[in-house]
Design a protein around this nucleic acid. Structure first.
Length: 140
DNA sequence: ATTCTTACA
DNA sequence: TGTAAGCA
């Protein structure tokens, strides 16, 4: 057997691959983005001449990249996690590292939320001051 | 018709 | 990352 991300076992399903356009369509991203991730070393599709051929494994990795981005992780963080997936078949270190990044992400999200709350309060106060100034004008 | 690389508003 | 350009 071979899980989506598994590399070791020789895949007998050597035909199920995707073209750039196919994978992009499935992932909902542009070819530019997919090539960009490749430049950053997150994906390493095979080539048929110069054409990119994405294997099931490439597709799985690409999906994780998209997923990671939706969650707000940087390509750097995603790459490090993906690399661990290869280096650690049991996914031990991988899980610990992922948990660590998730907690870090949660912390920054909380910080951002607090910052937004502060700015929101500031703007509402200013807004209120202006409204009150108008009220005073009318009363006068 | 599609994809590829490179360069840049 | 979008987009344009010049190839294959």
């Amino acid at each position: 057997m071979t899980d989506p991300m598994g590399a070791p076992v020789e895949a007998m399903d050597r035909q199920r691959c995707f073209s750039l356009a196919e994978l992009c369509r499935e992932l909902g991203i542009t070819p530019r983005s997919l090539r960009f991730y490749e430049d950053k070393g997150l994906i390493a599709p095979a080539r048929a001449g110069t054409r990119r051929i994405y294997s099931m494994r490439d597709r799985a990795r690409a999906k994780l990249v998209v997923r990671g981005k939706q969650l707000g992780f940087t390509l750097k963080q995603i790459k490090d996690l993906l690399d661990l997936y290869d280096a650690d078949p049991q996914h031990r270190v991988q899980k610990v590292a992922l948990l660590k990044e998730i907690q870090k992400r949660i912390r920054t999200l909380h910080e951002m939320n607090a910052a937004i709350a502060t700015t929101l309060a500031d703007l509402e106060n200013i807004q209120q001051s202006i409204i009150e100034s108008f009220d005073r004008e009318e009363a006068a």
